[in-house]
Amino acid sequence: MTTNTITLNNGVQMPGLGLGVFQTPPAETSEAVAEALRIGYRHIDTAAAYGNEREVGEGIRRSGLERSEIFVETKVWINDYGLEETRHAFDKSASKLGVEQIDLLILHQPLSEDFARTLDAYRALEKLLADGKVRAIGVSNFLPAHMKRLLAETTVQPAVNQIELHPYFQQRDVQKLDNQQEILTQAWSPIGGITAYAGGEKRTFDDPVLREIGQRHGKTAVQVMLRWHLQEGRSAIPKSTKPARIAENFDVFDFELSLEQIAAIDGLDTGVRSGPDPDSITLETYGRDIPEA
């Protein structure tokens, strides 16, 4: 893959590599977004629950780029699930972002304890899509059981399933089902940053396999991981607020991993999740009200 364009299952084109802003403080978000867009990024991923959609919008406006040049992705939080609630969640996000149309709107988590409410939220996304309010819809953190039920009880296939995915946790069962259904797998924590702050014994950044492959290409372990995602057909949304890191993360289109190198990275999977189990997400434990615009 030498370009940064992926065609979603509804024909919409999306840059495969984007800037994520999870845990980016609002005060730093607009500058990070503007810098990323200056470097060449054209895809920004945020979420209502991150509390920085307004600052993402400010960064986009600061860039001076036309709105049509930037792919904006955001997520609906579980408190806003439901037919009317999710439609209002769109209004809140669009207003904070300062846009009339959102390019990709996804459900942030499956609400396993009340999946009927999750289905209503997705049906609201379908209506937003039909009305032209969004260009594509999808989900995040959906395991095969969640996805199979969603596909059985709704009409529009998700364009994207955004999941924790890095060399140490690859979720091959999720990827397999996504691929079978022509759903793009999008990696959050694509360079395994979560392995550095979740208290694990190993950090992807220090992995000798990744570092050795990087040395062969004159690249860092981080760049190798991002290249791995792109070559395997996934989208990735690395997060950083540091200009040098933002630039490093985007400098991955001038080299190619060999089949042997890809196989070596595939072999690093530990099967250990660092983020929360999607089935553990409940309104009681993770609920939070999303402020009005």
Rank of each mutant, 00 (worst) to 15 (best):
R117G: 01
D207L: 06
P167S: 08
S189D: 02
L177A: 00
Q180L: 14
L129S: 06
T155W: 09
L165D: 07
G193W: 06
T185R: 00
K202I: 14
L150S: 09
S140H: 07
Q175E: 14
A152R: 14
A159G: 13
Y197E: 08
A136T: 08
A196M: 09
P158I: 11
H166Y: 14
T154G: 10
T118A: 04
H166V: 09
K176G: 09
G192P: 04
V134Y: 01
D207A: 08
E126K: 11
A196D: 13
Q186I: 03
L119Y: 01
A196H: 11
L150H: 07
G193R: 05
R211Y: 06
Q171C: 01
N141A: 07
M147P: 02
Q175D: 14
K148D: 12
A152K: 13
L184C: 10
I213E: 03
F169T: 06
R149L: 12
P158C: 12
G138Q: 03
K133L: 13
G193S: 10
K127G: 12
D207E: 13
E201V: 13
T195R: 09
A159H: 10
F142M: 06
G199V: 05
T155K: 15
R172C: 00
D207N: 14
N179S: 15
D131V: 05
T195V: 06
T204Q: 14
K133D: 07
Q171S: 07
A121S: 13
T118K: 00
Q186P: 00
I183P: 02
P144W: 05
